[in-house]
């Protein structure tokens, strides 16, 4: 019984290493398949046609004259030494550039999701307490709006409302909290609706379960029983919704960063994509893969812990 977990751990480790290698290879190949040559683009930005000699020198300096597999090996070797290479555009270490921006994007993406889960859950409970009340109508409206209104339009609307009309925040030159408040609100607005409706649906299902009937038989009111005994089901259901919402958080963060002018990853990545800044794009893709993978793993672990039944069945 002692050897099995070790063997499983070893297998998991090997699977992790293989997964990481695949992620790195996919990020590298995807970026290198983008049309457009970074050297040409860079020379074109100088407003004159670069001669072949200049292009060759630049290509050699950047290591782009090496075979592709050798460039991949160099890149992996650099990463193992925590060296992600240098940005083609700024000539600064990519890791330092990303590290300076990551906290903004991380705070906006995760803050927006957290706010969305919190308000969505509260709204879902309120909707369930009064099925035809304002909360229920509002949550339905949020879901429809999130599917039909472009995120950049909502971002502009939030900017106008909270910064121009109400003057609650100064998104450009205020404190760090002010600078991320607007973008977090945008991400949260789009995330709230789905969590509210899933919470509502889960609570409706809970009300027909035998253990809920038992709680009622013990003398609890319907609302108290939902609060006391529906929480576990709601967490499990919302954890399932959180996985696809992670993808939205990446896109929503990018849009809101651009609209609010936050110095996060998004603007930097847009520039990097335009100039085919390979080192930046590769590392960004790896960071996104790793973040999504880690978050997915944490959510799965949370669900298993709260509701181990699927694991047992497997």
């Amino acid at each position: 019984m002692e050897t099995l977990p070790h063997a499983m751990r070893g297998r998991r480790f090997l699977e992790g290493v293989a997964f990481l290698f695949l992620v790195l290879a996919a990020a590298f190949l995807f970026v290198r398949m983008l049309p457009g040559d970074p050297v040409d683009i860079r020379l074109q930005s100088s407003m004159v046609a670069g001669d072949e000699a200049t292009a060759a020198v630049m290509r050699s300096t950047l290591g782009l004259d090496q075979p592709l597999w050798l460039q991949f090996v160099d890149w992996i070797g650099g990463l193992s030494r925590l060296d992600g290479g240098r940005s083609l555009a700024s000539d600064r270490p990519v890791l330092a550039e990303l590290a300076a921006r990551l906290p903004w994007s991380f705070a906006i993406g995760n803050g927006g999701l957290l706010l969305g889960v919190t308000f969505g859950t509260l709204l879902g409970y309120a909707s369930c307490f009064h099925r035809h009340g304002i909360a229920s109508a509002f949550s339905r409206m949020l879901v429809i709006a999130s599917q039909s209104i472009p995120s950049f339009a909502v971002a502009f609307l939030v900017f106008w409302l909270v910064a121009v009309e109400l003057q609650w925040i100064r998104p450009v030159f205020g404190s760090p909290i002010e600078r991320i408040a607007g973008p977090i609100l945008v991400v949260a607005l789009f995330a709230t609706g789905p969590f509210a409706r899933v919470t509502f649906g889960t609570l409706v299902a809970v009300q027909s379960s035998s253990w809920f009937m038992t709680a009622l038989a013990k003398g609890l009111s319907r609302k108290r029983a939902m609060i006391a005994h529906g929480g576990r089901s709601v967490v499990v259901a919302n954890a399932a919704v959180l996985v696809p919402e992670l993808g939205w958080a990446v896109g929503g963060t990018a849009v809101s960063e651009i609209v609010f002018g936050v110095s996060g990853l998004s603007a930097y990545i847009v520039e990097a994509a335009a100039s085919r800044d390979y080192a930046v794009l590769q590392l960004y893709l790896v960071a996104i893969f790793v973040w999504l993978g880690t978050a997915h793993g944490c959510i799965t672990a949370l669900r298993s812990r709260i509701d181990p039944r699927p694991e047992v069945r497997r």
Binding site: F159, W160, V164, Q167, R170, P171, V172
Partner: peptide, 10 residues
């Protein structure tokens, strides 16, 4: 965005 930021007084 620039126009909104200008309008907001920042």
């Amino acid at each position: 965005s620039l126009a909104l930021a200008f309008r907001s007084g920042e």
